[in-house]
Amino acid sequence: MDEIVEVVAFMFGFLGWVMVGIALPNRYWKTSTVDGSVITTSTIYENLWMSCATDATGVHNCRDFPSLLALSGYLQASRALMIAAVVMGTFGILLTMLGMQCCKAGGENPILKGRIAGTGGMFFLLQGLCTMISVSWYAFNITQEFFDPFYPGTKFEIGEGLYIGWCSATLAICGGSCLLCACKLEQPENVPYVFQPNKGTVYSAAVTSQRGASSPYDRNAYV
């Protein structure tokens, strides 16, 4: 595998993992502004863990979701997928670092190091897929409620946390795909070709030439 491709893919995966850690606790997964007078205007925003509100005076009030079992199914699934993405990214970083050619911890075997790097790329790819499914599913429910004319609750819009999640998923998928496609899984067999002449033919020709030539020992030494 090319060392430049390794470094670029690792940086993509690492940045994706960092952005997952930023998106997960971000409070602005969805936002809604309730307009009123200058004093009563407030902004409501939520994420996977809590619901918050702030008014025009700058006072913030946050409330954690009371029960896990009382949450919507998509919210529980989004939590699980984001936590799984963090775990997958951690394994991807460790395995990719061991499989990189510049790292001596994984040994000197290029086949083994290529397979380790490829496994790290697979974990990065799983991280990106988990993140993409989580944020896309969450955004789908936001848009579905927003465009539903019969929805009685507060209508939210997509917040910055989802955009961070989409960027994270894209980087992780690109990094994992590069590692999987460029990893060195097989060692090329560069065996030099050695020319081997036909020994039997050369041997027979040599014997024939020796038999046909007259030996100096058969002649009279004085002639």
Rank of each mutant, 00 (worst) to 15 (best):
E46Y: 03
G36E: 03
K184W: 09
D148K: 03
T31Q: 07
A9R: 08
R219D: 10
M82G: 07
Y203V: 13
T201E: 15
G121W: 01
P197W: 02
N26A: 11
Q210D: 14
P110M: 01
D148Q: 08
V87N: 03
L71E: 07
G161A: 09
F124S: 08
G107M: 09
A213V: 06
I142R: 04
G159Y: 06
F65Q: 09
T143H: 11
Y45L: 02
P197Q: 10
L129Y: 06
M1V: 08
Q196G: 10
Q127T: 12
V38Q: 07
F146S: 11
T201L: 12
E157N: 12
Q144K: 13
D64R: 06
G106E: 11
W49Q: 06
C102T: 12
Y45G: 00
W49I: 04
E3T: 15
P197H: 08
G161F: 09
F65P: 05
G118I: 00
G36P: 01
G21I: 09
C181W: 13
G118E: 00
S67A: 12
A80C: 11
A169C: 05
I116K: 03
S51G: 06
V86T: 12
S134R: 00
R27V: 05
I142P: 07
L15M: 14
P192H: 06
K199A: 14
K113H: 07
I116P: 00
A85L: 08
G89Q: 01
C167I: 10
C62S: 04
A172N: 00
G153Q: 01
G153S: 07
W17M: 05
R79I: 05
G107T: 09
A206D: 11
T90D: 07
F123G: 02
L112E: 12
R27S: 10
F14A: 15
R211N: 13
F156K: 02
T90E: 13
C178E: 10
F12R: 02
E108H: 10
N198Y: 01
E145L: 13
G114N: 01
F124G: 04
G175I: 01
E6K: 04
G159N: 05
W49P: 03
P66M: 06
M19C: 08
L15C: 11
P197Y: 07
S51R: 10
D35V: 14
A206N: 12
F14H: 08
G128C: 03
I142C: 05
C174W: 15
T41G: 00
Q187I: 13
A105G: 03
F156G: 01
L98Q: 09
R219N: 08
A9M: 12
I173K: 08
L185S: 06
S209V: 10
R115P: 08
L75P: 02
L162A: 07
D148A: 06
A53E: 13
S78G: 10
S168R: 08
S72N: 05
V135P: 04
I133K: 04
N198F: 00
L112A: 15
A117T: 01
I116M: 09
T31S: 08
M11D: 13
G92W: 03
T208R: 15
Q144E: 09
T41F: 02
T208W: 14
Y203T: 15
Q144T: 07
F14P: 05
C52W: 00
T33N: 12
M19E: 09
A172V: 01
C130T: 04
A172M: 01
T43E: 06
T170F: 09
D55I: 03
A182Y: 12
S67H: 13
S214Q: 14
Y28I: 03
A221E: 13
